[in-house]
């Protein structure tokens, strides 16, 4: 545990010295937030809170992108093999990635919340407990997804391609960029298999104060199971050496990370109430209640 903590502190220090990190993790999401609120909120505090939920999702999911790139860079530059000589296993190294990332996004999350509350007159802090739990599990889970990408790609080029593809799905098919409620029904049903949907819809409901902490349990459970699967698999197929290639069979193991989300997606599609909740919350926030609101049946 002390080795994990030692590595966590060092990695946080290194990240703070990296201007790219500061730009992408703090400045850019804040820019999106200001831009989003000014363009779309139309002075509605409810919409400000909803946009905050979406921006918090993007901030938290950013862990996925940053970690995979960092780990592959470390491997390509031979930095990981220096650590391999020391009595440090893959577990502490990977755990420190997740922990440092978590601590590093907290300032961004706080700044975004304070800006919304004080500069954009958001009426409440939302469901703070639900936000804390979702940010914590979301950050850890998406960091672990980043570790998986780092484990299965051999070069930075491959990492960037896979990141782009996965990021597009995370961003546009989850409600993090466009509200899921505005999509056709079949896309909404597909989105239920997307891990990012559980984070985005959970955070949007939490910032708009439309859920109790108990109601986000399924979101947290989905993220927690995804975290466990992703961390364990990335630990098993972790590679220290640039020239070590991941066996094809190991790549299949990676698909196991998706199993919890396939299961949750199938459950929600079969008889869940998530889509109804998303629709209801969106209508409530936008005030576009021309259709009779879908009753929430939780």
């Amino acid at each position: 545990m002390s080795r994990t903590w030692t590595l966590t502190k060092m990695r946080m220090r290194l990240a703070m010295r990296n201007r790219m990190f500061l730009f992408f993790s703090l400045v850019m999401p804040l820019g999106f937030l200001v831009f989003g609120v000014m363009i779309f909120s139309k002075g509605s505090p409810g919409l400000v809170a909803y946009i905050l939920g979406a921006i918090l999702t993007v901030t938290v999911m950013g862990s996925f992108w940053g970690l995979s790139v960092q780990l592959v860079t470390f491997r390509e530059q031979g930095i990981l093999r220096r650590f391999r000589l020391a009595p440090v296993g893959a577990g502490p190294l990977l755990a420190s990635s997740i922990l440092s990332n978590y601590f590093l996004i907290i300032p961004s999350v706080l700044v975004e919340m304070f800006v919304c509350r004080w500069a954009f007159h958001m009426e409440t802090w939302g469901n703070l407990w639900a936000i804390i739990v979702l940010v914590t599990f979301g950050s850890a889970t998406f960091s672990a997804f980043g570790l998986i990408v780092a484990s299965i790609t051999n070069t930075m080029q491959e990492t960037q391609i896979i990141n782009q593809l996965v990021w597009t799905v995370f961003l546009f098919l989850s409600g993090a960029s466009f509200p899921l409620a505005i999509f056709p029904q079949w896309i909404q049903r597909c989105a239920l298999f997307n891990p990012a949907t559980y984070l985005a819809t959970g955070l949007e409901a939490a910032t708009t104060n439309l859920v109790s902490t108990g109601e986000i349990l399924t979101d947290v459970l989905a993220l927690a199971i995804g975290l466990y699967a992703a961390f364990e698999i990335s630990r098993q197929i972790f590679r220290w050496e640039p020239e070590a290639k991941v066996p094809r069979r190991a790549k299949l193991w990676v698909l196991a990370v998706l199993v919890p989300f396939l299961a949750f997606g199938a459950y929600e599609n079969a008889g869940g109430t998530r889509l109804a909740r998303i629709q209801h919350d969106f209508q409530h926030i936008t005030g576009q209640l021309s259709m009779p609101p879908v009753p929430r049946s939780r």
Partner: peptide, 15 residues
């Protein structure tokens, strides 16, 4: 019990 210098290795630039 061992220490080593590797032929091809590095450290993070900002350490």
């Amino acid at each position: 019990r061992i220490g080593a210098i590797l032929q091809s290795t590095s450290l993070p630039d900002k350490i």
